[in-house]
Amino acid sequence: MNAASQKLEIPGTRVFDGELAQKGYALNKMCFSFNSAENREAFRQDEAGYCRQFGLNAEQYEAIRTRNVLGLLAAGGNVYYLAKFAGILGLDVQDLGAAQTGMSKDEFKAMLLAAGKGI
């Protein structure tokens, strides 16, 4: 088996490959549009309408509606585009980390501080 075809199972981790890139295209395209302040405001005004405009499927819309980070990833979301959705909600990557690991944000930050002790 060569490196290109190797599938390595990494717990709690999935790389964003062609399969996810196809599955998540509409969701990621919507999140990419959030680079524009005008589009962020349009989403705030009418979330459901904005999602329809980009053709999100039911799984993607439900994950957006419920702010479900792991659900957004499973629906094909890429973290770099999802970060722009998180920006609308006023969340940073540590909020996302806490949401995905089931920790509070303080616990998540404490885990990282602990990782830096004694390095």
Partner: peptide, 16 residues
Amino acid sequence: QLDGERAGFVNPEFDK
């Protein structure tokens, strides 16, 4: 690592 259940993972041994 920003995404997935393993978010927050760092590895100082490997980095060094």
